[in-house]
């Protein structure tokens, strides 16, 4: 073996070993293959069968590790303590219901579908955002590759007075789309008759995301450098009502109807999004324990 060849292969071997020890298995494999190729081309080394076998054995070992990694589940099931920790760490909202939804969504995103299913069912039974919960339940069943369970769940909803006809239609098409995406052909029950329960929810109300809190960032004026955070007390379609204590009179005075708000962060139980809006109304509370406080109606731009 030529000295320069020997040195080159020695360097490559060290490199391959370092990559392997750092878990960079593909890089390690590539280096070993490079060594093998060099060795085969070299008249001196190509005869050293023991050396070549040694390199081949290293390649096999790295490939075995790569294969094991590929076969490992992306999101293994965790024990109850870890699931509880995920739920706790990823619930950010101040309101109990919103925090519970965030925790359940986090469990699902971390692949803890069985536990997430339990949480979504619990929230559904409490009447919290039923349509959103139902969609999440379907998502979990599909992720668990249990389309029959999803279809059965849908059948149950059909027979109960939980959703309006339009909502059931939405759920059916949502489930069908989720099945189609995964190449699932499980049939879903048809919607024939309109259930007893009817809702007078208009289209806008149905499609606008529930907002639990907003944070207003003003571009100018006396509150320019502040984040004005408000919890949403009431929402009708894209208009939210927030409460302002009388101690924050200066803010209430600043927000006159028509004031344009170009930077609003909206916190919904399932996401945070940036939007803009307009102050639609302002009122002073005249009765009750919050007498003297203010309410602000803010119309969020639905773009």
């Amino acid at each position: 073996m030529q000295t320069s060849e020997k040195e080159s292969i020695g360097r490559l071997l060290k490199e391959a070993e370092i990559y392997r020890s750092h878990g960079l298995l593909s890089n390690s494999r590539a280096k070993y293959l490079e060594i093998l190729s060099m060795s085969r081309k070299s008249s001196a080394i190509s005869k050293n069968q023991k050396f070549i076998d040694g390199i081949k054995s290293k390649i096999r070992a790295v490939e075995k590790s790569l294969d094991e990694l590929r076969k490992r589940p992306d999101k293994p099931q965790l024990n109850q303590d870890m699931q509880a920790l995920i739920k706790k760490l990823f619930s950010f909202s101040k309101t109990e219901a919103a925090a519970a939804i965030e925790g359940a969504v986090a469990l699902a995103k971390f692949g803890q579908y069985e536990k997430a299913l339990y949480e979504f069912h619990l929230l559904l039974s409490q009447g919290i955002l039923p349509l959103v919960m139902a969609k999440n339940i379907i998502r979990c069943h599909v992720a668990l590759k249990k389309p029959d369970a999803a279809a059965e769940e849908f059948s149950k909803w059909l027979s109960r007075d939980l959703f309006s006809f339009d909502e059931l239609a939405q759920l059916r098409s949502f489930t069908a789309a989720a099945f189609e995406k995964e190449g699932i052909h499980t049939p879903l029950p048809e919607l024939f008759t309109r259930p007893r329960k009817t809702f007078s929810v208009n289209k806008e109300e149905e499609t606008f995301l529930e907002i639990s809190a907003i944070s207003i960032h003003l571009q100018n004026g006396p509150f320019q450098s502040e984040n004005l955070d408000f919890e949403v007390h009431f929402q009708s379609a894209n208009t939210v009502t927030v409460h302002l204590p009388s101690t924050r009179k200066e803010i209430a005075e600043f927000f006159v109807p028509g004031t344009r708000l170009d930077n609003i962060e909206c916190y919904s139980p399932i996401t945070v999004f940036r939007s803009s809006g307009t102050v639609a109304g302002k009122a002073t509370i005249k009765h009750g324990p919050k007498r003297g406080d203010y309410t602000l109606d803010i119309s969020i731009d639905a773009d």
Partner: peptide, 16 residues
């Protein structure tokens, strides 16, 4: 320190 990492040396979820 909590490593939600049940697959050997690769972080699958997060460390905390």
């Amino acid at each position: 320190m909590i490593s939600i990492n049940t697959m050997g040396d690769r972080t699958l979820f997060f460390d905390f």
